[in-house]
Amino acid sequence: MIIVLDALNRDRFGDLEQEMFRLRARVFQDRLGWDVTVRDGLEMDAFDALDPAHVISLDESGHVVGCMRLLQTTGPHMLADVFAEILGGEPPLRSPHIWEATRFCVDTERLSGTGRARNSISYVTSEVMVGAFEYGRDAGVTDAVAVIDPVMNRVMNRSGNAPYDYIGKTVDMGKVNALAALLDCSDERIDRIRAFAGIEGDVFLSEDEALDLISTHAAPPPEKSALEIYCDEQIAAATNAKERVAALKLKAALTDKIRSHSQVGA
């Protein structure tokens, strides 16, 4: 299930964004050995400060299991800057119909390496791509240029999602290389990936659905003590302002007792 985070909804999903940056640290620094900056376990760079869109895959318990970052090629983006070596000094593509996809990764620790079930690397890789392509298609985007590593390239080749071409050359990024692949955001490609991975129906969660899913693994709110329930009932039952003020005062006076009870309850 996919949620797209951008500057408009990021405030509601602070924890989720952090979890994504932690996943990226594990993948790009620890596993792939790319030259990325990790602080406090979070992999973030200057492009995350430019309000990109993040396509995030959540598993059934609301954890981040895959992600990808999208930027417009008309403005600052990685191929124009830090990945310029891939283009061998040539200016990058620039079009409102072409987006750049970077930091594409899945959680190989949480996901199963074999099979095509929902919790498999194969499924989540496909789901992130379907989410990104459908989001791009609906924004009028026709093609994506994706900076990926050779392993991701192989996974895509095997999952109905082979790039139709590459631009520039493969460059050494650390333990593994990086290359720039071209992918069309077409219904044909989306259908192919969906058919391969068995993805049916709408992959996108609404913001409220995503928050509900995430809350399933967050700490449950402390249960109300009997005393607090009584106080709230008194507040609710107040028929005029005077009664309401009195009930609120009672609850305020009992705050300490209510707290200690609910802590015991939790």
């Binding site: 200016p91 593509l93 079009s95 072409i98 026709t142 093609d143 240029v145 139709y164 071209l182 069309d184």
Partner: peptide, 15 residues
């Protein structure tokens, strides 16, 4: 691929 040709043309038009 002809799609790559199209991508470069889109980019050239924008630039």
């Amino acid at each position: 691929s002809h799609r790559t040709v199209e991508v470069h043309l889109r980019s050239a038009r924008t630039k």
